[in-house]
Design a protein around this nucleic acid. Sequence first.
DNA 1: CATGAATGAGAGTTCATTCAT
DNA 2: AATGAATGAACTCTCATTCAT
Lengths: 220, 220, 220, 220
Amino acid sequence: MTHPNNRNPPSTTAGAPRGRPAGDHTAKRVELLRAATSVIAENGYANASLRAVAQKAGCTTGAVTYYFASRQELVIAVAEHHFDSFDAMLADVRDQTDIRTLVERWLSHTTDDPEFWPVMSQLLVHARYAPTLARVIERRYTHFRTVYTELLATGQEQGTVRDDIPADLLADQLAAMGDGWMIMAPFEPARFSPSRIRALVEAALTLITPPPCPAHGPQP
Amino acid sequence: MTHPNNRNPPSTTAGAPRGRPAGDHTAKRVELLRAATSVIAENGYANASLRAVAQKAGCTTGAVTYYFASRQELVIAVAEHHFDSFDAMLADVRDQTDIRTLVERWLSHTTDDPEFWPVMSQLLVHARYAPTLARVIERRYTHFRTVYTELLATGQEQGTVRDDIPADLLADQLAAMGDGWMIMAPFEPARFSPSRIRALVEAALTLITPPPCPAHGPQP
Amino acid sequence: MTHPNNRNPPSTTAGAPRGRPAGDHTAKRVELLRAATSVIAENGYANASLRAVAQKAGCTTGAVTYYFASRQELVIAVAEHHFDSFDAMLADVRDQTDIRTLVERWLSHTTDDPEFWPVMSQLLVHARYAPTLARVIERRYTHFRTVYTELLATGQEQGTVRDDIPADLLADQLAAMGDGWMIMAPFEPARFSPSRIRALVEAALTLITPPPCPAHGPQP
Amino acid sequence: MTHPNNRNPPSTTAGAPRGRPAGDHTAKRVELLRAATSVIAENGYANASLRAVAQKAGCTTGAVTYYFASRQELVIAVAEHHFDSFDAMLADVRDQTDIRTLVERWLSHTTDDPEFWPVMSQLLVHARYAPTLARVIERRYTHFRTVYTELLATGQEQGTVRDDIPADLLADQLAAMGDGWMIMAPFEPARFSPSRIRALVEAALTLITPPPCPAHGPQP
DNA sequence: CATGAATGAGAGTTCATTCAT
DNA sequence: AATGAATGAACTCTCATTCAT
């Protein structure tokens, strides 16, 4: 409660200052998270040292370890931070009950924040060897797939999504496609021009569309 | 007693004998590649130190750098090695002109070699910051997608694959799905039980199958 | 007992305390430069490892690399440091317009700081393969020869220095003699006893003195 | 006596083959010495690894250690080798009793063998920390200065060399000048153009020439 | 004779972390 | 609240040397 708008106070011993606004503390944390994001995106997880983060943020390494008890905590905070913004997008879309809208928003989200994919792929792959991070990702990712599954199920009921494949499998397939592209895109830019990405996304939507033939008509 | 005529055994407890063993250069290289594979799979790319590889292989770090001039070279050799075995599988399948067979073999390949996915995902994600490795992966990966695309195109001609989406997009989608699963599988084992993997793969095949309705029949 | 509140003293026997001491950055740098000087003088450039410098300074190698980003930077700083003290001497002498005074001061400088010659000869010879260091030496050395040349030219005007050889050549010859002795002195101490050094220097001064003429008539 | 033309069989245990010509062995040794010379000249003593020498000679490191028991022995052999060729020049000049001829030959020797100076300066400076090498250099160098001193003394008797400075001091001064130039030349090529070197050498000869007296008394 | 596999020590360097200030 | 000096362990890589073949 001392950090009212800090959603995940990891485990820092230092309580926030009593009488002063916690804004400074949180703001600085976010600033460092942004710096860390940039460094991970530019240099990769393995080369994202605290030094580099501090330098990017224009402060000392001491400052970084002051705000984040350890490198692990920083990395986890970066993950949470990005999932937060992703979830905000999801909450927005959820009501509209339209899988196409979700896909579009997902696409524009990754375009708006060009560091999203690079950072996520780094964290995703590293998570295998960082159980704490893995649990965070699993939890957040599960939420994402839940929304996805819900929308697909709704679409199936409404006849806008093919219903010969269970919604959860469809969700996994679409999510996996996204992850796969996210991994490959960075070093095969030619294959992932904006227009081709669009074509891939359209084709993905085509894949899940019910076939346009009378025999397979929508349920009444 | 292992080295009766070694005049100055500095302070090692045991230590392998010094001189020239009857080794086979290639065999030893492969042995080290296997060790490196295991270490990367178990500890991740960032923690795959030459020391760790040497320890896994039961030799000194000096021996590793004797066979591989640098860590980068070792990593690239690991990638090539795995692509080699993957390509062998591809060559086998290519003649059979059957997308289902390819998918099956791809699946069993990743099952037979449980380190394939973990290692590949590590290298894939690291490649973004290792241009030389990136070029290797791009080259080999392109070959893989080419075969995939060919088989899908053939399937489209034969009417076993839906033809409302260009074969190259389909190939990219299937490949991306595989990559996406590869990334997520390691730390969500529950979601990727053998039976669910099977369901996912079957669903993927369903996605690319022509809809079973007269209007969309195969061309005469 | 030196670190009562150090929670995890890994396995060191003593170890300095961790936190921030009241150190003066510049002072510590100079201390390390002195240590480096000693190590280079005693063991030679090739054997002057950061570890050895750290040990001489009574700290860890980490501390050395904290103050000097790299070995190269340390070596260059050592060179600059010695040239600084040399230049201070030069500035002192410059006004006095007397070549003999310069030579005397140069000699006493090398005597006062017995590490000057050994270190300089090491750096001089190594500089051939270290372009950055070479540029530093060239710059500082040029200054030295400029002063030398000025004083000689003045001496020529005043008739205290022979004028049948251009001042810049004389400067090069005297400087080269000094360098040559500097190289040989360390391992032929017998040839470079204080008294013989004095004789060599006096002879050098005689070489550049204008001939006293008639008494020294040509051969019949 | 088994190697009649090998002047310095260092300390190898292997006696030369009984019945076969030792030429092969000696020839290979010389080849390696040449390679070592090049490497030292190009990369400096500190970077002259056996690997580099072997590579330059087009053989394996094993071959190098086969012909030279250790790195130290190789280095010493290189020094001896160069002094041998230098001594051959000296022997040639010695009879001619002319200091100018010696200086000329010394100059052309260093020009003919452009690796002579670079190698010698490296070995000279390293010798301070390699007693065995130091002893070799001292011995050979003493011989050189002896010849120099002899020629200068003869010149003094003949009136071609100034006699107000003992011949041994003059020899030391000239030798030191040569060493000094040798050190500086490599990284100040502008100061050591062929024409300027000539001017320096001529000026050095002028320094030791008896003054032509009356004509040279400008001061009133 | 000569090779080249392998060692083991040590190099420079990077880094997360600690903590007196 | 924030710094930055310093640690100590890890890293990759180089090297002289040894010795079975």
